[in-house]
Amino acid sequence: MSHGPLDDDAVESYREAGAVLVETMNEAREMVEPGVTHLEVAEWAEDHVREEGAGLAFPVNISVDEEASHATPGRDDNTEFGDDDMVCLDVGVHVDGYIADAAVTVDLSGTDDLVEASEMALEAALEEAGPGVPVGEIGAAIEDVIRGYGYTPVLNLSGHGVQKYDAHTGPNVPNRGVDRSVELEPGQAVAIEPFATDGRGKVGEGTTEEIYEQVSDRSVRDRRARKALEQIEAFDDLPFAARWLEGTGTEMALKRLKQKNVVKGYPVLKEEAGQLVSQAEHTLLVTEDGIEVTTAGIHSFD
């Protein structure tokens, strides 16, 4: 599919979403300290995005240690950050549907080089990226840096395109070298997100599920499910957190909606127990003569 140049309004919305995300992330990362709860950070960040007049492209992800993605606190979650946690914060913001997606790793465990591996892999990927560049070459740059640090890229997670009101589209940007792959095209918005691990480099689904997305508008008879669906339809088909739903019985309502294939859930993706995962991510616009990073200003070393 040919993209062509983005119109000025779209570019401005992508930039505004990036600016809100940068400000939110730089504040939120400072909150990650032992004794603070995951829920406090997630709710602060989500509230801040809304206060800035933007929307959430997905719930704030707070992944700890072996968790890599899709982890967000539940409604009554009182889990606190520990003094040896590795914490990945992944935040998505949209303005009029145009999305910025970025992630940082806050290390409380003293494993600085694992964090640096994903950060430097992201820098290498951004240097490689541009119109006409095969995504497999970007993946090779990511893999070379991470393996150079003695770690393994998470091979079954990848970067991705973002389009209006769609947080995960093509092209996929692998975290390893691929010989044959599509090329980046002007007009694309792409989130590049290296994951580095001291584990085997493959994530699997855990049992926890707090993030959902509407996938059909099929009618349901259950009263509570209908009430939940009324709220869900306000999320513009973007992923949402179970804790965003108000009223009693929302857990059972979501279960009914899943059974009817009205919503799908996103289980937490995890490495093997005892391993660590770091993540770094930026969103960029591919232009005719290069790239523009809409989320620049986040990934600085302390």
Rank of each mutant, 00 (worst) to 15 (best):
M1A: 12
D96T: 03
L108H: 09
I146Y: 02
I62A: 02
V268F: 05
V60H: 00
S219G: 11
Q231G: 05
T250S: 13
G187C: 13
E127M: 13
V190N: 08
V133Q: 11
W244C: 00
P267I: 03
V87G: 02
V262T: 10
D198Q: 07
D84R: 15
E23R: 09
T283D: 06
V190L: 14
H282R: 10
V220W: 05
R226F: 11
A225H: 03
I62Q: 00
D222K: 11
D8F: 06
D198A: 07
P267F: 12
G161Y: 04
L122A: 09
R256D: 11
R221L: 13
A280L: 12
L157V: 10
R224V: 13
H3L: 14
R223S: 11
Q259F: 07
V162C: 04
V60W: 00
D166M: 08
V178R: 06
E193T: 01
R226Y: 12
V277T: 08
D217V: 12
A296D: 15
V190H: 02
A68H: 04
V220F: 11
T207P: 07
A19H: 02
F81I: 09
R50K: 14
P239H: 04
A28M: 06
Y165W: 14
G132S: 09
T105R: 05
A241N: 09
N175T: 04
Y266E: 02
P34D: 08
V41F: 04
E116K: 14
A100C: 08
A117D: 07
A167N: 07
I138G: 04
A57R: 00
T207D: 14
M31L: 15
V277S: 03
E116I: 03
S219V: 09
E230I: 10
G148W: 05
G247D: 07
F301Q: 11
S13P: 01
Y165H: 06
E46Q: 12
G206Q: 03
S181M: 09
F58Q: 01
A17T: 05
A71W: 00
V104W: 00
P131C: 11
H38E: 14
V115N: 03
N61L: 07
G170A: 14
D289H: 13
D217T: 13
P171H: 07
L108S: 14
T287G: 14
P186K: 15
P239D: 07
V104L: 10
A19D: 08
V286T: 14
E43R: 12
K258A: 07
R29G: 12
G136V: 02
M31I: 03
E128A: 15
G53Y: 07
N26I: 09
G18A: 11
T24P: 05
G247K: 13
D198P: 10
R75Y: 15
H48I: 08
Q214I: 15
I62V: 14
G247Y: 03
G274L: 10
L285Y: 12
V277G: 01
K258Y: 07
I146A: 00
D77F: 13
V135A: 06
T248N: 15
V262W: 01
Y98K: 04
D222V: 11
K255F: 08
K202Q: 12
A121P: 01
R226D: 08
S118A: 13
Q279N: 14
D237R: 09
G110E: 12
E137V: 05
D8Q: 13
R224W: 10
L157P: 00
E292Y: 09
P131S: 11
T79C: 08
K202S: 09
A234M: 14
